[in-house]
Amino acid sequence: MRFRLTDDQRALRDGVRQLLARRFDAEALRAAVRGPVRLDRALWRALGDAGFFALRLPEADGGVGLGLPEAVLVFEEAGRALLPGPLAATHLAAGAVPGAAEGETVVTAVDGGLAEWLAEADVVRGDTAGAVPLRSLDPLTPLHRVPGAAAAPDPVAVLLTAAEQLGTAVRVCELAAQHARAREQFGRPIGAFQAVAHLCAGMLVRAETARVAVYAAAVTADPADIAAARLLADEAAVRGARDCLQVHGGMGFTWESEVHLHLKRAWVRTQRAGGITESEDVLAADLVAGTP
């Protein structure tokens, strides 16, 4: 299969990146981490105005009328920027929950026994009886534990999570390469040392492998392809962020750096949409079914 972005898809990706650079840049990210954990409603409405949530809603219903490949590109950019909030839940609610498509209504959902941004949400999909707040690893993803049986994850939610993980994998690869070129030891950029170069090369390989899998799954929408993409994207995000921390050394653990925030968000995302185990089970079942 060949997958090449069209001019319109590139324009969409670049437009979202520019929007986030204006509305949620590195300084805004640091300010959000330092301040009380609150959802920026003005930013949420700006996302709605840009069509973020209504992207896959038919034009006849007031949406943009695009498909999963475009949604994946948009969510990749959100992951790259560490955009906070129940993005996937609100996106999936567009057309079903009034105001969700426009960014006027914040929607969250019970997902695998957890609910993100429960206190900030206007609408919650799923039963939250007995919900208990948890101390989240990620300072920009407040969590509640919700008792009860977990429902089967929506494959689209799985794919959008994979896209966000891909965004983190790509971003930490960029950060590691930038630091490796700029930081010097013994009169040479640290990227000239083999150990650092190997870390950066491994991050790039995992990120690009995950990119191929995520983009292909967006085209086929096959549950097994989505499960495989999720596994590869989770690995690329978590291992990439950990290796990026190694490249940065102690600097990566400081609040002035975004590296540790990517690692923490990547860890939290691995618990979404059934988690890694659910995707492993889907992929294993598909492999067994195809065995003669």
Rank of each mutant, 00 (worst) to 15 (best):
V110W: 00
G85N: 09
V110G: 04
L114G: 08
E102K: 02
V97M: 13
E102I: 00
A96S: 15
A89P: 03
L87M: 12
G103A: 02
L83G: 01
L118Y: 08
V107H: 01
A101C: 00
A101L: 01
A101V: 01
G99E: 11
A93H: 08
G85W: 08
L118F: 10
A96I: 13
L82W: 01
L92P: 09
G112H: 06
D111N: 13
A81S: 14
L87Q: 10
G103H: 04
V106G: 01
V107D: 01
A81M: 11
L82Y: 01
G99A: 15
L87S: 07
G99K: 11
E116V: 07
G95L: 08
L114A: 10
A109K: 13
E120N: 03
A121M: 06
V106Q: 03
W117R: 05
A100L: 04
A121R: 01
P84L: 13
P84R: 08
G113T: 14
L114P: 07
L92Q: 10
P98V: 04
A94G: 12
A96T: 15
G95N: 07
P98W: 06
A115Q: 02
A89E: 13
V106R: 02
G95E: 07
G95I: 08
W117N: 07
G113V: 14
L92A: 15
V107A: 01
P98A: 14
T105S: 05
A115R: 05
A100M: 08
G99Y: 12
